[in-house]
Amino acid sequence: MNGVHDMGGMHGLGPVEPEPDEPVFHTEWERRAFAITLAAGFLGEWNIDMSRYSRELMPGPEILTTTYYEHWLWGLEHLLVEKGLATRDEIAGRVKPARPSKPLRVLKAAEVAAAIAKGGAHRVNDDVPARFKVGDRVRTRNINPLGHTRLPRYARDKHGVVDRDHGVHVFPDAHAAGLGQKPQHVYSVRFTMQELWGPDASARDRAYIDLWDDYLEPA
């Protein structure tokens, strides 16, 4: 979706403000927001692409005026309701919480280290042929889906060159919509800054963007 989360190339969003000796979390509520989001994710009721999409669905003006972990909370509440794990009334404290209607696998403290070490399963071993090879010239498609996509607006309808083939991965546009993995190759595609931003951009500099087969056409 063409949401405000897709920020590449926007102007006017302020200066970059690094914080010296920044702590991992700034408040106790950030710690808890981080932990409940990760722990709820381990229930397995949604995947990482659904999780990203849920945060994108937060209204744009709110995204721009709230902090990072507030985005996480918004997305978590959305997913809990969408997947039937909680109701808005329960979240608002208007009714007594009901137990889940089905058995769920809840992450235990002793399982945390192994679960983190295992990581996600975005790489797929399916034998899917690559549509492009390193060195091929490609053009990104001009798509504007209402759903989740990882093709940023600034990189649509642009010419680039396949720099690396990263193998077969889950396709987020399908995965976020619950349409399965639709596994396909992901490539680092190299773009000149002038292709992306016009003749005033640096002639020397390049952007590398990770893109799936479905985003690309031969050029």
């Binding site: 932990a35 722990a39 909680a86 404290g93 919480p97 137990r99 992450l107 403290a109 945390v112």
Partner: peptide, 17 residues
């Protein structure tokens, strides 16, 4: 709410943090 519903284990939260 998540603890009351049995969807997260408080000790796992502490371990993640």
């Amino acid at each position: 709410l998540l603890i009351d519903k049995g969807l997260v284990d408080p000790k796992a939260l502490d371990e993640l943090i």
